[in-house]
Design a protein around this nucleic acid. Sequence first.
DNA 1: ATCATAGTCGTCTTCCTGACGATAAACACC
DNA 2: GGTGTTTATCGTCAGGAAGACGACTATGAT
Lengths: 256, 256
Amino acid sequence: MSPYDPSAFPPFAVTVDLVVLTVRRHALCALVVRRGEPPFQGRWALPGGFVRPDEDLGAAAARELVEETGLCAHDPGTPLPEAGNGAHLEQLATYGDPGRDPRMRVVSVAHLVLAPDLPAPRAGGDANSARWAPVDELLDQEGGPGREGEQPAPLAFDHARILADGVERARSKIEYSSLATAFCPPEFTVGELRRVYEAVWGVALDPRNFHRKVTGTPGFLVPSGGTTTRQGGRPAQLFRAGGATLLNPPMLRPEV
Amino acid sequence: MSPYDPSAFPPFAVTVDLVVLTVRRHALCALVVRRGEPPFQGRWALPGGFVRPDEDLGAAAARELVEETGLCAHDPGTPLPEAGNGAHLEQLATYGDPGRDPRMRVVSVAHLVLAPDLPAPRAGGDANSARWAPVDELLDQEGGPGREGEQPAPLAFDHARILADGVERARSKIEYSSLATAFCPPEFTVGELRRVYEAVWGVALDPRNFHRKVTGTPGFLVPSGGTTTRQGGRPAQLFRAGGATLLNPPMLRPEV
DNA sequence: ATCATAGTCGTCTTCCTGACGATAAACACC
DNA sequence: GGTGTTTATCGTCAGGAAGACGACTATGAT
């Protein structure tokens, strides 16, 4: 077969799936929707849908994101009009196992979205319901032996694997980039940022060392001037995300 | 439109493109093939081809790699029989701009391959020729102002962008993983490994600090017992890649 | 007033890194 | 055989980053 014969090629369906992560109540949560039709009817799945014939992959992901959550994503690679609350969007990976969808050959380009806590999930046009679920709960299927408690049904298709890859990407990327601020509102305190790291990594961080680290990393945070007491205790300085996208030196995830 | 209607979906062609990198004569080089047919006839392009109907994406990439180079790739995610010289293979990113191929809608899943210097490029079955080209040369198109010298024709399609993404992935990944050993033969010296880092990053590294660093990182290198003088000078100890895949602490790329 | 909570500033020790001197073991050449 | 060159390897030292943790500050709750 000629390597590029445009007249004879196996047709594929191409979709985008979204791993939308946020931090709620000290836990890393993902957006899942309930499937209204077979296969996997009634099971939870990642939001997603077909890529349209004249649509770029990132644009398809952003469109699905708006449809499912109302969030306006901002893909650094595809500059958008920047309309208000821009969540972070980036391509994650592509999944094309021949058997991943029992109906047909579907190649899915997964995208990762990091959003602040604000939005309440919005049900789609169908009878689908949507919710934020802690990722620990969604991925507990392959938990260690001796786990007790009810295990929810696993995610549809290979979405557990996609979600796990997205979570791992987020966990590693906040180490060396300023992406953790994507989980925060436009103005936030050092403590709020620390709780993001703690929730995403699932560890406890020393507040004093964390404060020294983030305020000492050039370009990470810029003071906005105000203070807040919304977390209780002494008023905390408010910051905005600085221009730096790569942190040098990086934040260090405590080992094990 | 229902988000998953298997009977009505826009058909896409799905291909894999390969960014095959190696280090030759102190330079990071990529494998490129000459296109024998329009569009971009006569121009250099990344090797690649269609994904077959019952083939996983990683398997398609490994197959194309064998067809084009004879290399047997080893994708950590898709364990293979491990037949001899296993190059490193990983998925890079997916490119699906509607206009990226003038003939039709093609979504290409790019893969990154890191290989030792050994193999000579093997021409494909067609009249295509293949060669190793320094990435600096292939990507010089958007070089700074005042560049002199002949600029080769840019790569076909969006392959310059794909190559740039692959190079950047390799540059950053050897920082915190042991992937640099994928550029080395099974047994190598500390100096050879250092020259890999120097070629990929385009910097000079202090041999003494580098030696201390890599021999002191647990799991990175294991002595094989032998020595060699193939680089001239005092005999150097031979090592193999250790089991560690993540380096802690990471290698630090000197800033600017 | 007292306590609890959260934020912020310092100190100290340990480890890592970059800069660089010194030595060792091969080869090329005269 | 000396001598120089090349590469490898070990050691030393100063500066900086990070973890552990003490101390103090400014709010709200009781």
